[in-house]
Design a protein around this nucleic acid. Structure first.
Lengths: 329, 329
DNA sequence: TGAAGTCGTTTAAACGATTAAGCAGACTCT
DNA sequence: AGAGTCTGCTTAATCGTTTAAACGACTTCA
């Protein structure tokens, strides 16, 4: 592997000059710059990232921590984040918590060892101690749906309320009165936001609302829908994510309850698959690529202006009407 | 950030001793080791990966190159790869080609700059020049469905033939005679393997076979299924991946052709969503977690025994019968 | 008793970049 | 002409590890 030294020798200059050229510090005579670039090109020179990170005291990698890349909500976010990072000359290190908040500490230590200047945490819970530690070490952070922005951290806030209100309003316009809601785990902050929004919206629309906490899985949606149907006989069900909505559709199918004729179903997230269910799922679309982009951009901003305080970045979902909603039976 | 020097001072030893402890070289008196470990613990010491990589001449990161993390075939592979890497104290750097083979060169340069000791290429085509370059630099490589193993590279070979034969045999047993096949792009090697296997299997089963090349997307499956239905009126269709099979299901639905009563459909891959279609998709399951694991393990082996030649790792798919297949009308 | 091992530790030289500080030489100004 | 200011480059220190080689202090053995 060619080193900066070899490039310097070949170009007949010192390593410092090569370094200046490579870092676009316009300190070098154009003619010399050309010689250096030629030499680098000819030798197939590639900067040694490790050496660079050591000298700089920080690497060009940023962390992206998500619960599970297998969850269809995250691949698109990940991709957008990676692309944004690459466009800025950085690498993304993607890590899964497997929905186990305990794991985060270990992941953060790995990231700190890698000297990352920043990391995005797109998981619902992060121990405040960890947040403080990161801020203390000057590592930029971006969170999703956390309390708010802080010293070295920004927050990406999905406006669940708006999305849920649109969904409820859509059902109201169709004439529904008895509406069920299948929520996420009771201990999740993001799940609570959606449920509270639903209750408010339903009250405001004068609906008879019934809610049930579930677990964001297809299976969970299936069972919860069954219980809801038995207990309250709603004409429409809103699920807090698409996976549960799909479970609900299967439940309805198995019980021979036609969707949407006898039961309207609305999901949340608009995962890629939502458009391919039969009938296609009406759902609240969350712009996932934007989340990934914003997550990186917020880090980039924080990294390049250490004085700047963290910001709040809003994400605005909106209802996508497909085929699982219709007037009540 | 605490450095090894501070740990050494706190423990009253030299940095070399600390390094030996940290690297589990059992060269140190147990009593001293304890002192060092305590000191490291107390200071919250984390190894500086950049410095380590620089000294070692290679990093503890391995590359994983895939076409698109948004494609449901890859998240699970990625996850398994990451977990295998982490279990061995390494980090995975995941990169997308966005199905553009041209991009690979750039990605490889980034990986080489990161001093990775190995990388897995789970994409259909890799320029032989790149393969040679990697082997030349002593970087271990793992490929998917490539010609074969070589000096510093292993190959993971999915036995498409076996999977396709099982699918065809299943249809034969049900009594189907006119069977269609929706393949991938004509220029893809993996697509060709599946199609050839189908033609062989169909001939062997004495079936009337019709094939059509498509593009591995839901849309493509939809249109191709339509064309196949118009041209040949088959009683069953096999798609080269699940996405196209799902497209075919939609096509059948839109044409009021009941599945499986009037048309049997079989997919390939068994993506997570295959079990959630309505009716649930019969498909050939490819053990994706195994692919991820093997990809990493093959790299690990090559990295730790530089003398060892690359190996061929077989992946064996198998049919999963669900609800989209039945005897012909 | 002295040569030859062990054992546990330290010394010091890498590794490949970045960057502040220094240094010639040319140019400007008084 | 001499002092001061640019310009364009080099010198050399630095980042935090790893690891071969050296080095005392003991033990063993002839």
């Amino acid at each position: 592997m060619a080193t900066i030294k070899e490039v310097a020798e070949k170009a007949g200059v010192s390593v410092a000059t090569v370094s200046y050229v490579l870092n676009d510090a316009h300190k070098v005579r154009p003619e010399t710059e050309q010689r250096v670039r030629r030499a680098a090109q000819d030798l197939g020179y590639l900067r040694n990232t490790a050496a660079r990170s050591l000298a700089l005291g920080r690497s060009t990698m940023v962390g992206l921590i998500i619960p599970d890349i297998g969850n269809p909500f995250f691949p698109e976010i990940t991709k957008a984040f990676q692309e944004a990072a690459n466009a800025c000359g950085m690498e993304a290190i993607v890590m899964n918590t497997n929905s186990d908040a305990q794991r985060i500490r270990g992941l953060v230590e790995r990231l700190l060892g890698l000297q990352v200047p920043g990391a995005a945490f797109l998981t619902s819970q992060v121990d405040p101690a960890i947040k403080e530690m990161l801020a203390g070490k000057g590592v930029a952070a971006a969170y999703l749906d956390h309390a708010g922005a802080g010293a070295r951290c920004s927050n990406i806030a999905i406006d669940y309320r708006k999305g849920i209100f649109e969904a409820v309003d859509h059902l109201r316009q169709l004439g529904h009165v008895k509406v069920g809601f299948i929520g996420g785990p009771a201990d999740g902050a993001a799940a609570r936001l959606r449920k509270d929004a639903f209750l408010d919206a339903a009250r405001q629309a004068g609906m008879e609302a019934g809610t049930l906490d579930s677990d964001f899985t297809v299976q969970g949606g299936y069972f919860s829908c069954g219980k809801l149907l038995d207990a309250r006989d709603p004409t429409a069900v809103i699920a807090a994510n698409d996976l549960m909505a799909i479970g609900a559709m299967h439940c309805a199918y198995d019980r021979q309850v036609p969707v949407p004729a006898a039961l309207s179903i609305i999901g949340f997230d608009d995962i890629t698959f939502a458009q391919f269910t039969q009938p296609a799922l009406t759902t609240v679309a969350v712009p996932r690529a934007s989340i990934g982009n914003l997550a990186f951009e917020s880090l980039w901003t924080l990294i390049h202006d250490p004085g700047l305080p963290g910001r709040e970045y809003p994400i605005v979902p909106s209802l996508v009407v497909r085929q699982t909603t219709a007037p009540p039976r």
